[in-house]
Design a protein around this nucleic acid. Structure first.
Length: 259
DNA sequence: GCCTTTGTTTGATC
DNA sequence: AGATCAAACAAAGG
């Protein structure tokens, strides 16, 4: 579930509850989601320090540590950040809990353990090494055109490829293509220019609106409100169909989404 | 109980 | 070589 807008909301949690407070205790319960860092190193790098800044690239979130380096989060399919106050245990399946003065806690929670936590020296360098494309929020039209060039796969698979554009996943790509009127199975490099233009414009609009709404209360006109085979399209007289594209369940309206 | 779901990595194939 | 695709992964809910 966590795609760019979700991670942006987690970033708000981090900004509001996790910054500029001394980390008193670092809890790393049982099965670890740590990558490239041991529990003891992570504890040493965080304990007694403060998180002082945040960065996001695509679905990756970073928290700058006052002693240098960045705490890195990836949320897999079911991860999220939570903050709470007091003596309660907090959510189940928390993999990392930071305790702050005054009883405030910040937790990284991941039920299915496909998320990852690590420490990196340099967030930029990490993005480079991973080979991530530009963040979907900053992508300009020419950049998008260039990145679709020579791609023989489906437009859906290409937009979900984090090396092409970072931040979009199954739900938002379906939404963008639905609102752009583009068939998810269309070849990425064969799109008419107005389709590329529409995808670009729609991507910006959809992401901003999703973030503004806190990733809830989506407009009624959105596909996300009717991801169900047989539902009325809502944009035209068509009917929503379910199929599989790039190995992912895909909802679209064959009537107004064209190749 | 099997199927579906989500994002990424992997190994194979084009 | 580089792109693309299917399968695997965990675990819960239908």
């Amino acid at each position: 579930m966590p795609e760019l807008p979700d991670v942006e909301v987690f970033r708000d949690v981090l900004e509001e509850h996790g910054l500029e407070r001394r980390i008193e205790t670092v809890h790393l319960p049982s099965d670890s989601v740590l990558e490239d860092v041991s529990k003891s190193t992570l504890r040493r790098r965080l304990k007694g320090h403060r998180l002082v800044s945040t960065r996001r690239h695509g679905k990756h979130l970073f928290a700058g540590i006052d002693g240098g380096g960045w705490l890195r989060f990836h949320f897999g399919m079911t991860g999220y950040l939570a903050s709470w106050e007091g003596d309660e245990d907090g959510p189940e399946h928390a993999k990392l809990i930071l305790d702050f003065p005054g009883g405030r806690h910040l937790g990284y929670v991941c039920v299915r353990r496909l998320g990852v936590i690590g420490i990196v020296d340099d967030a930029e360098a990490f993005v480079e090494e991973k080979g991530l494309g530009p963040d979907a929020r900053d992508l300009d039209l020419d950049g998008l055109r260039q990145r679709l060039e020579g791609r023989s796969g489906s437009i859906k698979g290409t937009l979900m490829n984090q090396g092409v554009v970072a931040g979009l996943g199954n739900i938002y790509v379906d939404e963008i293509l639905y609102q752009s009127g583009v068939d998810p199975r269309a070849r990425a490099d064969g799109l008419p220019d107005d389709a590329a233009r529409s995808i670009h414009r729609t991507t910006g609009r959809v992401l901003e609106r999703a973030i503004d709404g806190g990733v809830e209360d989506f407009p009624r006109a959105w596909l996300i409100r009717r991801r169900e085979a047989g539902a009325d399209c809502g944009r035209c007289e068509g009917t929503i169909e379910k199929t599989e594209v790039s190995g992912r369940s895909t909802y679209f309206c064959p009537r107004h989404q064209r190749k």
